[in-house]
Design a protein around this nucleic acid. Structure first.
Lengths: 198, 198
DNA sequence: AGTTTCCGACCGACCGGACGGTCGGGACCA
DNA sequence: TGGTCCCGACCGTCCGGTCGGTCGGAAACT
């Protein structure tokens, strides 16, 4: 078992990233000072620098956490789906749920890309593509098994369209609304995959 | 005829906003200095302040230009559509085209909202809602005329989903790609409105 | 036509403040 | 006693914005 005992420092780091993400999502990365973060988390600025080398590292950590979790979730979802069509449907649903439940995190990851150092930005892009690949691959398998389905666009375009519909939730979903994230996910999955059945 | 003669100053202002939007979209509003903008447009910083009261005003101008054009485009599109269903379809198509052809502008408007002063932010929100209203209204008319259509979600959710699919183009569309913006728009409109016919 | 006035366009040099990051040291625990 | 956690005070830099002034051309006047 790779049960790594979380040190006290790791817990603090997690707290800091969580609080930072929330502030970044409201004020923007550049507009948020390290002093603000320190105050919000109940520490002083030098103490923040005890846990993180730089402001940038804070952002990188947020990105890498989200990407790790996104990829893992995608992998699990595809593995659990009985058919390729179910895989596509469940990818949509689970992604909607994840997005609605982590709006602040997603907002930061979608809107602060230009703050990443070029080398990191490229790595982020690669992993984002890997996530899309789950979608494209499942869709490809479905289309291969069902040649009668006539998709009016290239598979990649279809995937980007779905991802847009799904990711956009970070901008408009409000927790106390009429639908739970899961309901929302299922509704969207149903509507979007209508084009995948003849 | 309301042919307003554009003064030299107005032309300069337009050039500045256009250049600014391009730089803001690459580096972010906060990360872009007035010196950079001045240099890129071939002026000095004080001259920039001769045309604009503040950096913020530059951003406000970008927002208001985009919103004006978006609303006008929406209005025209709905007015020209023979049926409510066509209105929805054409709103999607024209919006995809507009988004693909002004990616930098849209990126700024979607990702720098937190830089707007609260009062302006509220106004932007109101106008954004007015734009959504074109969609919702057309969809409502269509559903009223065709009670046999079973939409698996609330109209507002459907509209938000479509807007996400459509707006997301600012993130992934690349001009030299396989599809022209118009083709892309028609493909998406066809797929998304499949749920609107029985 | 010549001359004075005026104004928009333009800039080099500067200011005040904020921000990322550091330093030196205190307190607490093993 | 050495490592972890923590902080008040400080530094260098950069940035939004201003100041004081130049230049050229279009009126306005004579």
């Amino acid at each position: 078992m790779t049960e790594t005992a979380l040190s006290r420092a790791d817990l603090q780091r997690a707290r800091v990233t969580s609080v930072s993400a929330e502030i970044f999502s409201r004020r923007g990365f550049r507009a948020t000072s390290m002093n603000e973060i320190a105050a919000a988390v109940g520490l002083s600025k030098p103490t923040l620098y005890h846990y993180f080398r730089s402001k940038e590292e804070l952002l990188v950590r947020i990105y890498s956490d989200v990407l790790d979790e996104s990829l893992a979730l995608g992998q699990r979802t595809v593995a659990a789906a009985p058919t390729p069509l179910d895989a596509v449907r469940d990818l949509i649903t689970s992604r909607v749920v994840y997005t609605c439940e982590h709006q602040a995190l997603l907002k930061v990851c979608f809107e602060e890309e230009h703050e990443l150092p070029p080398e990191l930005a490229e790595q982020v892009l690669r992993r984002r593509r890997a996530f899309e690949q789950f979608f494209v691959a499942a869709l490809g398998r479905h289309l291969a098994e069902h040649p009668e389905v006539r998709l009016p666009m290239a598979p990649k375009v279809y995937v980007n369209m779905c991802l847009g519909a799904v990711n956009w939730c970070y901008k408009w979903y409000r927790p106390g609304g009429a639908n739970t994230p899961t309901e929302l996910g299922r509704q969207m999955a149903a509507t979007l995959t209508a084009a995948l059945t003849a």
